[in-house]
Simulated scan of single mutants.
Amino acid sequence: MSALHIDTSTDVVELTRQLVDVESVSHRERELADAVEAVLVAASHLEVTRRGNTLVARTRLGRAERVVIAGHLDTVPLNDNLPARLEGGTLHGLGSCDMKGGVAVALKLAVEVAEPNRDVTFIFYEAEEVEARFNGLNLLSRSDPELLEADFAILMEPSNASVEAGCQGTLRVEVRTHGERAHSARAWMGSNAIHKAADILARLERHEPRRPVIDGLTYHEGLNAVFISGGVAGNVLPDECVVTVNHRFAPDRSEAEAEAFLRTFFAPYDVVVVDSAPGALPGLEVPAAAAFVAEVGGQVAPKFGWTDVARFSTLGIPAVNYGPGDPTLAHKQEEHVPVEHIERCERTLRAWLTAGVEGGRA
């Protein structure tokens, strides 16, 4: 067990600063995971399970509902942005926004709310910022899916301390055109594959993206060329051109439906799927979700992007993103989080978990 000590008795902003100052770049989360584990196992009301550097802490009170509150421990690599510093009402530092502010909120609640009105599963997981095969939540869904069972899930991703429901799916495909090589001085003897790609680009330019309304939220799809490659030499007509297209699709479509749409859209060109991840339905009609949204207040927004809420959706668990910080600051050198966001998220979640319950604190 690590000698590092995390003091959860302090306020949630100071707890965030402590977490930020523990370097936990992806694949190097062990020191922080050890310290978080020590805090969790000391709380007698929690049942703690560890898989690698992923920790699961659950209450077992026999409540009618169970919710998951999850956050990842890892960060992107350092960029001369440690240690943390508090300036005015803002905490600066690597991971402050993405997402140690959210982790601090969840950790403090896990320790202090001993008798929540719903059973809670707190998950602190590794390797979110790297390939999906390393993602602790993904690995847990395969090794111990029963630990993820719940009626509703909250992912503490930065969302400006407001609710962003569900998420879009993402699909990347390579669309190929084929030609025939020839010397560029005798172009009539060949066929230029790059020129043929003009039709693909024209289709994309003309495309009107869908804007489906799901649970009262309007999702705006996207279909865009993100790479184009081709060419053999400066005096040779290319015999192949590849346009890489990213499709961000609304969660009312499955991956298979999104792929079928693209194959039809680009027919008769060759289409090869190179990357795919499902979206997540918001599920705001679920009682726990409705109660949470009512507690948070304000306008619920759709998530324009992909997050790990999709992993819960594939398990049939509706999920939302809710955490302190502006998501556009994630991974930036000047990453920071407003103190007010951290405090508001902690206050709101505590109120939601203790409403109608006496003695909610440990």
Rank of each mutant, 00 (worst) to 15 (best):
S2T: 15
A3I: 10
D7E: 14
T16R: 07
Q18L: 06
E23W: 05
E23T: 15
S24C: 11
E29C: 09
R30F: 00
D34G: 10
D34M: 09
E37F: 06
E37Q: 14
E37K: 12
V39E: 12
L40E: 08
A43K: 03
E47S: 13
R50T: 09
R51K: 05
L55W: 08
V56E: 10
R60N: 13
L61W: 07
R63Y: 05
V68H: 01
I69G: 07
L73T: 12
T75K: 10
T75L: 07
L78M: 09
N81T: 11
P83A: 09
P83V: 09
A84V: 11
R85F: 09
L86Q: 14
E87K: 13
E87C: 07
G88L: 04
G89I: 04
T90V: 15
L91M: 11
H92D: 10
G93F: 07
G101P: 00
V105D: 06
L107D: 11
K108F: 03
L109I: 13
A110Q: 08
V111P: 02
F124D: 15
Y125E: 11
A132T: 13
R133Q: 06
N135G: 05
L137I: 10
L137D: 12
L139W: 01
L139M: 02
P145A: 03
E146W: 06
L147P: 14
A150L: 08
L155A: 10
L155H: 12
M156Y: 01
E157C: 03
S159Q: 10
T170V: 14
R172L: 10
V175H: 04
R176W: 06
T177K: 09
E180N: 03
H183R: 11
G190W: 09
G190H: 11
A193T: 01
A197C: 05
L204C: 01
R211C: 03
T218C: 00
Y219M: 12
E221P: 10
N224H: 11
P238N: 14
D239S: 12
V243E: 00
F249Y: 15
R253H: 14
E255Y: 02
E257F: 04
E259K: 13
P268M: 00
Y269C: 10
D270C: 00
V272T: 15
V273C: 09
A277C: 10
G279W: 11
A280K: 13
L281W: 09
L281N: 01
P287I: 01
A288M: 08
A288I: 04
A289V: 01
A290N: 12
F292V: 06
G297M: 09
G298T: 11
V300T: 15
F304V: 13
G305S: 12
D308A: 07
V309Q: 06
L315D: 05
L315K: 12
G316M: 06
P318L: 04
P324Q: 13
P324D: 12
P324L: 08
G325M: 06
G325W: 07
P327C: 12
A330R: 14
Q333D: 03
V337E: 02
V337A: 04
E343W: 00
E346L: 10
W352K: 02
L353Y: 10
T354F: 07
T354Q: 12
A355K: 15
G356V: 05
G360T: 08
R361M: 12
